[in-house]
Amino acid sequence: METTNPKTSRPKRRLAPVNWFGLVAGALMLMLPFLGPWWRATVGTGAMEVALSPFDYSISLLGQPISSTLVGYFLLAAKLSVIIGGVLMIAGSVGAKRWWGRQLVRFGAMKVFWMLIGLILLLVLGALFLNSILPGMLSGMAGEAGGAAMQINVPYISGSAMSTIQIGATATITAPITASLTSVFWIAVVVAALGVAARIYHRRFVKPKKLMVKPAEDEAEDEGIEAPPT
């Protein structure tokens, strides 16, 4: 019968607890700003092209690019924000039981989620403006100068539609508009879901505050939770 020698057997090493959701989400957050646009739209076959993500944008009219400094700086900040969020998320996930783990994870966890919500809102409100408000404004302006009826149909987020501009009774301009979400958008959805999961999962590493009172400190130490420096 085989026996183990207590002197030679090594003690079992427990892996430090890691927030795996946060680790994966953090790594993907570092890649996400460099994967490309989340949404694309085209008018005709290159008459106008729009590509958007929370980190970058490109608008071109007949191949001529159009840009805005303010938007460019905002998107650069969004890029930095997600990269910093990703780094902190990884740090917080690796040091899940450290006193700073929860705050670092919280800083990065919801960033991509809110960016997704922001982009969807922007697309829906943008389409609503183009479909319902802009034609009235432009038709009114053109009406004073001779008369034009404008019917813009921009797809909400994704799809195809035809827009027409009727200039008097003599000319009609028709433009097909196509919009679609790219595969990067769906990667972002996965990252956002992982971020939310990481935030929820991280609760298991945090003891409720009522247990952190003085008499329970020893117990907390037993659990391996590091107390913040005072």
Binding site: T69, G72, F74, A77, S81, W99, W100, F107, P228
Partner: peptide, 30 residues
């Protein structure tokens, strides 16, 4: 103390990343 400082630091970082682009974009265009 450390937890509170980190909390404030992260809050300020978030604000800086939001306000910073405004200031930088306007500053480069006088």
């Amino acid at each position: 103390m450390g937890e509170r400082a980190l909390g404030w630091g992260l809050k300020l970082l978030g604000i800086a990343l939001f306000v910073g682009p405004f200031i930088a974009a306007f500053a480069v265009h006088n």
